[in-house]
């Protein structure tokens, strides 16, 4: 990651090499640092935390544990926040977690129609499509059509429940364990759990498909 944003060049805040938004953001950071409201090292640490440490690999661990430990699964569905914390996972944006389980009868999908609420501690920051109008508008009225956009076709007999994240409860989907994974380790199972499978816009990978992008 680059650190050139630390050159607080007060004489040339609108340097010709910067786009208007880049110049505006740099000016704002300069000002907030000069005022003492923010510290550049804390900003760097925030970016690093959400770029490299917090992400869907954490949610995948939770799912893999639930697939291999029935008592853990039961606790997870009953009271998700402390059960996720058993794995050392939790915090901002996931203070009040709810996990919903997919079955052959019911498929769950998570959205935030009003903004971008998303379970940060288990999935990281949301992708652009999750925050964009197309998904927020359509997930609640045409979830099956949205799944088609993701290349997911469910049996007509599978009913869909959409969870609109309109308060501070945050939702994660526990997908169904793929067939052919008997005897897999938690680590091998976690590699099959995609971010979209935990949002409900995808399904876990099939064994042998982990290396696909």
């Amino acid at each position: 990651m680059t650190h050139d944003h630390h050159h607080h060049d007060h004489d040339h805040p609108h340097g010709s090499d910067l786009t208007p938004v880049e110049a505006r953001v740099r000016a704002l950071e300069s000002l907030l640092v000069e005022k003492g409201y923010v510290q550049p090292a804390a900003l760097d640490a925030l970016v690093e935390m959400y770029e490299t440490k917090v992400g869907p690999h954490l949610g995948a661990r939770v799912v893999a544990r639930a697939w291999t430990d029935p008592a853990y699964r039961d606790r997870l569905l009953e009271d998700a926040t402390p059960t996720i914390a058993e794995l050392g996972i939790g915090g901002r944006g996931g203070e009040h977690m709810v996990v919903v389980e997919n079955t052959p009868e019911v498929h769950n999908m998570v959205v935030c129609t009003l903004c971008s609420c998303y379970p940060w501690p288990v999935l990281g920051l949301p992708p652009v499509w999750y925050k964009a109008p197309a998904y927020r508008a359509r997930a609640v009225i045409d979830p099956r059509g949205v799944l088609t956009d993701f290349g997911v076709g469910l049996p007509e007999t599978t009913r869909i429940t959409v969870w609109d994240s309109t308060a501070e409860t945050r939702f994660m989907v526990l997908p169904m364990r793929p067939a052919g994974t008997e005897g897999f380790s938690e680590e091998a199972l976690a590699a099959l759990v995609t971010r979209d499978a935990m949002i409900g816009t995808g399904l876990p990978l099939s064994p042998g498909a982990e290396i696909q992008p």
């Binding site: 990651m1 880049e22 740099r26 409201y37 923010v38 970016v47 959400y50």
Partner: peptide, 18 residues
């Protein structure tokens, strides 16, 4: 990617810190 430009990173972090 988590962010699509460096300025997005700084806006995210400033919003959190403020």
């Amino acid at each position: 990617p988590v962010f699509h430009a460096d300025w997005e990173k700084r806006v995210f972090a400033m919003a959190m810190a403020m």
